[in-house]
Simulated assay, not measured.
Amino acid sequence: MELMMFNKNSKLTPFKALEYSKKLWFISLLMAQTCFVIYLILGYGMTGLTSGLSGWNRLNNTAYVANDATGNLMYAVHVLFAVVMILGGSLQLIEKLRAKYRAFHRYNGRVFVVLACCISFAGMYLMIVRGTVGNTLMHALTMFGGLVVIVSSIFAVKTARARNFNAHQKWAIRLYLAANGVLFFRLLIFAWFLVFGTLGVDTATFKGPAVLAVSLCSYLVPLLIAELVRYAARTNITFITIGTACLMMLISIVFLIGLVGVTLANWYPGIVG
């Protein structure tokens, strides 16, 4: 028997609960994106103006490498384009904005696609040439996220031009999730640190089962959850819809915990230091 609060005659139905949970997830992510953009502008932007690109090594020790103009340019593209891409992408998901300002939605979408692809190419180049922390599987998952951005961009544009808006929405969501994979990783790993400490993490090499699990939950699992949310929105199986709503609420809470952790431990010190 269904719970009374989810009875068809009540105000809160399973589908409304799912919609509320999606909005909560989006708001929590938007908060994280805003803080991340502030960190990028003040941390990288102001440091670059006052200390030059070499000052970026205060934030990331592989940000600037002497006599590597191509790599330094790629890193600058990777960071500075993200400022526009992150918030611009979220504007694409606001339904009222899409309906009222269709021209803006089209042009902002084109900018988002171009920037997301540029950032992904730059990120993959830097990973191959300069390397990064973690093991090979973690690197493969990060590369997978970059490839999803590029493939999703192609199909999002193709379906939009064909005016197949249902398919366009699916590919646009995949693109959005993949483009935010790096932010997801930061939120999830710092949420893990706050709750479990360094359990499952080798802090010297940044390897371990926890790091691998967080990588999976940042680059692969969001794509699967998107399919679950889509299915839960059209199914008549109540427990799936309710369960998906609870999952989205849980993810929102994890995002907020991670936001507190990454802000206090990384972003705020990076700005004021």
Results as ranks from 00 to 15, higher is better:
5 M>W: 12
6 F>W: 07
9 N>M: 08
10 S>Y: 11
11 K>D: 03
12 L>C: 03
15 F>I: 10
17 A>H: 09
18 L>P: 13
18 L>Y: 04
18 L>K: 08
23 K>F: 05
23 K>M: 15
25 W>I: 15
27 I>Q: 15
31 M>A: 09
32 A>T: 11
32 A>L: 10
33 Q>L: 02
34 T>K: 06
38 I>M: 12
42 L>H: 10
42 L>P: 08
46 M>Q: 14
48 G>M: 12
49 L>E: 07
50 T>N: 14
50 T>S: 14
50 T>R: 11
51 S>P: 03
51 S>Q: 14
54 S>E: 02
54 S>Q: 06
55 G>F: 02
58 R>Q: 08
59 L>P: 06
66 A>P: 05
67 N>F: 15
70 T>Q: 04
73 L>C: 12
74 M>L: 14
75 Y>K: 14
79 V>M: 03
82 A>W: 01
82 A>T: 12
83 V>L: 11
84 V>Y: 00
90 S>R: 00
100 K>E: 10
102 R>D: 11
105 H>K: 04
107 Y>A: 02
110 R>M: 12
113 V>C: 06
114 V>S: 02
116 A>R: 03
116 A>Y: 07
120 S>M: 06
120 S>N: 01
120 S>F: 00
120 S>R: 02
121 F>L: 09
123 G>F: 03
126 L>K: 07
127 M>E: 03
128 I>M: 05
131 G>R: 08
134 G>F: 09
140 A>E: 13
141 L>H: 03
147 L>R: 15
151 V>A: 15
153 S>K: 06
155 F>V: 11
158 K>G: 07
165 F>L: 13
168 H>E: 01
169 Q>K: 12
173 I>S: 07
182 V>F: 10
189 I>Y: 03
190 F>D: 08
193 F>E: 04
194 L>Q: 14
196 F>I: 08
197 G>S: 07
199 L>P: 09
202 D>L: 00
202 D>P: 02
203 T>H: 07
206 F>H: 09
207 K>P: 00
211 V>C: 08
212 L>I: 13
212 L>Y: 10
214 V>P: 13
216 L>V: 14
225 I>C: 11
226 A>H: 00
230 R>P: 01
231 Y>N: 13
232 A>K: 12
235 T>Y: 05
236 N>R: 09
238 T>S: 15
240 I>W: 13
241 T>C: 06
242 I>G: 10
246 C>A: 15
248 M>V: 12
248 M>P: 10
252 S>E: 01
253 I>C: 08
262 V>M: 06
265 A>F: 03
267 W>H: 10
